[in-house]
Computed example of a mutant assay.
Amino acid sequence: MDVVDEVVFLTAMIYQHAVRGADQMIRDAIDQQLKQQNEGDSDGSAGVLAPVG
């Protein structure tokens, strides 16, 4: 393996590791927002079709 190839490979591995943590934080934040929205929606009408017009 060429030195440049090795540097590129290691850089990619470091980047993937760093991004993996950010992905988890984003998923957790979205889950928390969805749970908060679901707690406030107590009328049970989500997903029901309504006539328009």
Rank of each mutant, 00 (worst) to 15 (best):
P51F: 14
V52I: 14
V4F: 12
Q32V: 08
D43K: 02
I30D: 01
A12D: 07
Y15F: 12
I26S: 11
V3I: 12
G21W: 06
D28F: 02
S45L: 14
I26G: 08
G21Q: 03
N38K: 13
F9M: 07
Q16M: 07
D41P: 00
Q24L: 12
G21I: 02
S45A: 12
M1C: 05
M1I: 09
N38P: 01
L34E: 12
S45Q: 15
H17F: 01
S45T: 14
S42R: 10
V48H: 09
Y15Q: 10
M1R: 07
T11C: 02
V48F: 08
Q16K: 05
R27N: 10
G47P: 02
M25D: 03
M1H: 10
D28P: 02
E39D: 03
G44N: 06
D41F: 07
A22W: 12
M25Q: 07
M13F: 07
I30A: 08
V8R: 06
V4I: 13
V3N: 13
I30K: 03
I14Y: 01
Q36Y: 11
T11G: 05
D31L: 13
A50H: 14
Q16G: 11
G44T: 04
E6T: 10
D28E: 11
H17K: 03
Q36E: 09
S45F: 15
V19M: 01
G40L: 14
D41A: 14
I30F: 04
G53D: 14
L34A: 04
L10A: 05
A18N: 01
G47C: 08
R27K: 13
L10W: 11
V52C: 05
V52E: 14
M25H: 01
V7Y: 03
P51N: 09
D2I: 07
D23A: 10
V8L: 07
I26V: 14
D41N: 02
Q24H: 03
V19F: 06
M13H: 00
E39M: 09
D28H: 10
Q36M: 07
Q32A: 11
L49V: 15
Q16L: 10
H17W: 05
V8W: 00
D2L: 00
D43G: 03
Q37G: 06
P51S: 06
V4C: 07
L34Q: 09
A29K: 09
R20I: 01
F9D: 01
V4A: 14
G40V: 06
L34V: 12
A46N: 04
Q37E: 11
I14K: 09
S45H: 15
E6C: 03
L49Y: 15
D2N: 13
N38H: 04
G40A: 14
D23I: 12
D5W: 08
E6R: 15
A18R: 08
F9K: 02
G53T: 10
L49C: 13
F9T: 00
G47R: 03
D28R: 14
V8H: 01
G40N: 12
L10I: 06
M1V: 09
A50E: 15
V19K: 02
Q37I: 12
V3P: 04
A50Q: 15
D23K: 13
A12F: 00
S42L: 11
I26A: 08
D5P: 02
T11S: 05
V7S: 08
V48R: 08
Q24W: 03
M25T: 06
V19T: 02
T11I: 06
D5I: 06
E6W: 11
A18D: 07
A29H: 07
